[in-house]
Amino acid sequence: MAAKEITDKSVIVKAASKRQRYEGLVKEFYNDIYRYAYWLSKSRQLAEDLTQETFMRAWRAFDSLQSDAAAKAWLFTILRRENARLYEKFRPELDDIDDYESGLPDSRHLEPEQQMEVRLLHKAMASLEPEYREPLILQVIGGFSGDEIASLLNLNNNTVMTRLFRARNKLKAILDTNNPLPDSPNDE
């Protein structure tokens, strides 16, 4: 009987600990995960759903997370796979103006100048090819190193570094040609 009580308590403690760990991960990473989803999918509605789906899958597979130090890369990988699954079945293209507007992030909390910066970057990022956009987002939003991005994308480090270099140059060119960001440098 005593052994059963100890077992029950250990189960409860384990469940509480799992829940606390999950809540800790949500608090620490949900904004980054949402941003990654947003810049990857180019749509705030899809980003919201992808974020929810990512944390749903994370909770269900929580026992497979060996170390909290690996949590960030783990969450980014789940989201990336979810996004890929979505695009295998359905490829929403945010081309027309209504769709483009609905894809923009909620920017009510931003100053008008900041809103403009985000809108311009949204448009520029949308025209960047996925092979360049994705490593750049992982670097900027995730703060991952070249090696980590290489591991996440199953590429070698040199390819990642080349794509990052080209991604920045292409983005600069797009922004300079169309709508330069305020204070952005002109390397032409």
Partner: peptide, 26 residues
């Protein structure tokens, strides 16, 4: 400067209100 500006602008995007609460209910 471009990298800093890019990081700053991309980080301006904030998760919508209520999303954090929804994630905690998962």
């Amino acid at each position: 400067a471009f990298q800093a500006n890019l990081e700053h602008t991309m980080q301006l995007v904030q998760a919508p209100e209520g999303l954090h609460a929804r994630l905690l209910q998962i």
